[in-house]
């Protein structure tokens, strides 16, 4: 059994809507080993993004536990432990593609020659070596998402969380981005959680989970109860 990168147990989250309390997650269990990939599908509003935000430590659960690499998830470890790819890319418009990739490294420390070299290497690996000095506004949607993928991998994270990364892309570009994500994660032994609506993309991951009624269904080879 590989090293457990992500372990969540009994995650619960509810929102208040007027007088009504909506329970979005009702005890989600998930565990992921190094280099594993898992897809999470579900209907719109089923809580996929909410779950991903909890797994990323961006939001606090109402109940349950979350650990990254066997240690409790803490915001100050986020920059080095995990990378996130969003549906809307979220690149910083004032800086070029290379600087956007390097921004992830800046969050940890002032980048040196090694970090610059890695950023250039990642930009080249996502096929944008010629466009490294272009601003986000000068890039297409697919290119922007590839920059976002390179940024997510900049700090060599153990875990990559992708929230519908093809949602704003055409089918052809979406295919390329998903292949890129899966390929890079395989290559760098990075665990991947892919939230998607697309069954074909989900099928490319090691495991397929389905979020319904606030609970994750599907195969889960790592035994979280033993952690």
């Amino acid at each position: 059994m590989s090293e457990v990168v992500l372990a969540a147990r009994g995650l619960r989250k509810s929102y208040q809507s007027g007088d009504l309390e909506i329970e979005v997650l009702r005890g989600v269990d998930i565990a992921l080993g190094a280099g594993e990939s898992v897809s999470i599908r579900g209907e719109s509003g089923s809580g996929k993004s909410t779950l991903l935000n909890l797994l990323a430590g961006l939001d606090a659960p109402d109940g349950g536990t979350l650990s990254w690499g066997g240690e409790p998830a803490q915001a100050n470890r986020r920059a080095t432990f995990l990378g996130i790819v969003f549906q809307s890319f979220y690149l910083i418009p004032e800086i070029d593609a290379l600087a956007n990739v390097l921004m992830a490294a800046r969050m940890v420390k002032a980048p040196g020659a090694a970090e610059r070299a890695r950023a250039k290497d990642l930009i080249a690996r996502v096929g944008l070596a010629e466009r490294a000095t272009h601003l986000p506004a000068q890039l297409s949607g697919g290119e922007r998402q590839r920059v976002a993928v390179a940024r997510a991998l900049m700090n060599s994270p153990k875990l990559l969380l992708a929230d519908e990364p093809t949602g704003n892309l055409d089918e052809h570009t979406g295919d390329a981005v998903v292949e890129l994500l899966l390929g890079l994660c395989r290559e760098t032994q990075t665990a991947l959680v892919l939230v998607t609506h697309n069954a074909a993309y989900a099928a490319k991951t090691g495991r397929q989970l389905f979020l319904r009624d606030g609970v994750l269904n599907g195969t889960n080879p790592v035994d979280v109860s033993s952690r």
Partner: peptide, 13 residues
């Protein structure tokens, strides 16, 4: 606002 959210997601305190 969304860029500020991104910075938080990238690990900014």
């Amino acid at each position: 606002t969304r860029e500020i959210g991104l910075l938080g997601a990238l690990g900014a305190r």
